[in-house]
Design a protein around this nucleic acid. Structure first.
Lengths: 235, 235
DNA sequence: TAACGGGATATTGTATCCTATTAATGCTGA
DNA sequence: TCAGCATTAATAGGATACAATATCCCGTTA
């Protein structure tokens, strides 16, 4: 067989719709695709060198998670996120993420905490580089949070939270820039994360729950202006 | 998206994947499809008289909302819902639905309340028929709740809640039977719903929020096992 | 006899083709 | 000129055909 040697059973290769979706999300994050843009399956297909089919599946997936919306026989376009949408998503995040954190704390092992610390160290390294990469920061930040949330072993909950994060893809760019230019935000993130780790070490689950909620609160109030700028750029 | 009116063979109003999914959900609810069953696209396609393509889309959708899971090149099977999953879903419902109710209350018009009352009257009629139809009860119950939630005008939130309800499809049957056989549950539902309506009329939004939460709490405590047992399995 | 490997089979993933639907365009007639 | 209908172009939806991959079975071999 082709697959001679090891790497048994657990190969998780990516299927094409996933790759297509990754590409689209990248384009969304780097601004190539903007809100409201029409996504024509055939154009994307030829641009990516695949047939229309995987593109269709990717779009269907993105529709299901609410990033794009499609009208039968008319087309698919990228959803226009309003300020109200963003607020709504943060309301949901504030409702769900503290719970995930709470149950994660109930379940976490010392070993898992070590993993988390490793991610955090990597994140801090990147954050305080001379020329940080916004996207890398966001990926690592996400990894940090989901390392916690996944520990809750509540797959439905984690899945929903993941969807919410995806919705904010448009703003990853902003976040990245903010952390790059605004060292205070970076320091605040570091402080928050470290306090999460401390609370986890002490198994202070209620404390962690509150801390996550507060952290999100601060995030919202901090980002109001920059989001407003992004939504109404020419104001 | 209430499909008022006809529903003959050749409807062109709903797209086929949706019809396929409806059919599958029906089969899930009536026990034709059980948890763990393998769903072979081609079989389903021929059974429904369509090609594999709409079936694939339907399965993809259901996978996205977590009702089925698929392994590449192997197949799709219906997820096995454990009691822990159910508890988890209720935790999420308790986190989200009170919020939706709260914002619904903030937005609701007298007219909308009338609509709600109409649904409730219909539900009560069915509930206290001599031979109630479990499925009909559940459809009407869902309509009641979502008439409220949709009033919040928070599409992401409502969408997430809708997914959670879909997850419980397997248990709709059970619940339905419960309401049929156990008149006390039926009465409790009626009481809860009527109190929701009353709170809405008074625009007591915080009260409604709490009432929804408590109502869900009572539902959960009706379920035997504790979530703690699952989350800390070896205790 | 048990373990390994190759091939048959089943089923999904992808490509291509055809059809249905919509929206835009243009023609006709008042 | 404009309203209204017919026609057409563009594009999504659906069917079919083909490729890729995993699983299972069976024969070979130590």
């Amino acid at each position: 067989m082709v697959n001679s040697g090891q790497a048994p059973a657990k190969i998780k290769y990516k299927r094409m719709p996933e790759l297509v979706m990754d590409q689209l999300m990248d384009w969304i994050m780097d601004g190539t695709i903007s809100m409201g843009d029409k996504l024509v399956a055939e154009d994307l297909a030829s641009k990516m060198g695949v047939s229309r089919m995987p593109v269709r599946e990717a779009l269907k997936n993105m529709e299901k998670s609410g990033i794009v919306e499609s009208i039968p026989y008319v087309g698919t376009r990228v959803v226009e996120l309003t300020m109200a949408d963003v607020k709504q998503i943060y309301i949901m995040r504030k409702a769900l993420e503290p719970i995930a954190a709470y149950y994660a704390c109930k379940n976490i092992t010392d070993e898992r905490i070590e993993t988390l610390i490793a991610v955090q160290e990597q994140l801090e390294r990147v954050l305080f580089e001379e020329n940080p990469d916004g996207k890398e920061i966001f990926v690592l930040n996400r990894e940090f949070h989901f390392t916690i949330y996944e520990t809750s072993q509540m797959r439905h909950l984690v899945n929903s939270i993941s969807n919410l994060w995806d919705h904010l893809a448009f703003f990853k760019l902003i976040y990245g820039r903010k952390y790059v230019t605004d060292k205070d935000s970076a320091k605040r993130v570091v402080r928050d994360h470290r306090s999460f780790i401390e609370l986890l070490k002490n198994r202070d689950c209620k404390g962690l729950q509150d801390a996550v909620h507060e952290s999100l609160d601060r995030l919202v109030s901090g980002l109001n202006e920059s989001i407003e700028d992004y939504i109404h750029p020419n104001k």
